[in-house]
Design a protein around this nucleic acid. Structure first.
Lengths: 192, 192
DNA sequence: GCCGTTTATGACCGCTCGTTCAACAACTTC
DNA sequence: GAAGTTGTTGAACGAGCGGTCATAAACGGC
């Protein structure tokens, strides 16, 4: 009982995500967003609130998809070590080099200045740490990974390394560490 | 033979660095800078060019100091492995958690959108990689570090992990991985 | 076909941004 | 002390920002 939306909310949200991802939060203007999303200013504010709220919606959507993909790869895998290595390769290759990882960008650029973003990214990193730690634990129980390291510590180390690799990649057009070589190196180091 | 500067250039540059470091490039306005530096708008433009040039000057100053410190710690050290561990602890502790590492921030926030920053940070990372790799090589020759890994690969891994830890730390007020525990973990993994 | 409600449009708002500039001040040289 | 040069000052500029709002349009219910 009213005029229906002329655009798809999720499609528009994806377009907004792409724009924020490419130019960062401060580097993205409302005009950039309306152009990419294919809607007018008024519609944007009516549908998504304001710029910050739109960013948070796009961020949460991105993170939920990422967590779902990680869980699908790691949980119930026959070999935890193989699953971890595959997940690492996917995570490194999944983010285009120039744009980097949207999560890492948001964490570095916004977390210190915005408590909402900080709360969301912090919760996400913690949940990721749990999922990785559980996989590590399974790998240790199966004798695939060295067991003289705390699963949580190892999970933190893996996440830190991954985030760092994605951060460093932002400055070059091409990745100079091939994903395969990188994750093989890591598994060599952490493997039994 | 003219009116002399009423302020010290390096002191003002340090103040600018602090401001950029705290709020990022986009988040820092000329007014923020003049207030922190204790000079007027005109003086800033006369002495440093424009906002971007000022940022580049502050960045290069910061990076040169960092490289000098790293070289002092690593080159000529009796034990390369010990020196590496101490350097890692220092690098992690040297950057206040909330502000993060200025280099990592600049790399993530600006490198993809600014070719000047990209050129500077890229050269810095490469030079750091060389210094670390040389220390790793010495450690391997001394039998302190496992020698089945390419020094350059290991250097990249260490730098990635360090950058990632500094990136992740930005979202919390306190570091949840104690520097000692972190570097001990790394040396456990890379040690012979 | 009219009403109530939601959405779409784009002109418009006040504000802050980075930057410029003309006038003035401080110093050296002669 | 006059001339020449450089540094300082703060008002002013145009541009672009995020955000608002009156008006028009598109639907369901009756």
């Amino acid at each position: 009982m009213a005029r229906p939306r002329s655009f798809d909310t999720d499609t528009a949200l994806d377009a907004a995500l792409e724009t924020f991802w490419s130019h960062g939060y401060e580097g993205t203007s409302i005009s950039d967003l309306t152009e990419a999303m294919g809607i007018q200013r008024g519609s944007l504010y009516q549908a998504f609130g304001d710029k910050k709220a739109l960013f948070l919606s796009a961020l949460e959507r991105y993170l939920e998809q990422g967590r779902a993909m990680t869980r699908a790869k790691l949980e119930g895998a026959p070999s935890a070590a193989d699953a971890l290595r595959e997940w690492l390769e996917g995570a490194l290759g999944g983010c285009p080099s120039k744009k980097g990882c949207f999560l890492v960008n948001a964490t570095v650029e916004m977390s210190p200045h915005d408590s909402d973003v900080a709360r969301i990214t912090q919760a996400h990193w913690r949940r990721m740490e749990e999922v990785i730690a559980e996989a590590v634990e399974r790998g240790q129980e199966a004798g695939e990974l060295r067991s003289d390291v705390e699963p949580r510590d190892l999970a933190r180390l893996v996440l830190s390394t991954l985030a760092g690799a994605q951060a460093l990649d932002r400055q070059k057009a091409r990745r100079d560490v091939a994903p395969g070589a990188f994750s093989e190196l890591v598994t060599t180091l952490i493997g039994a």
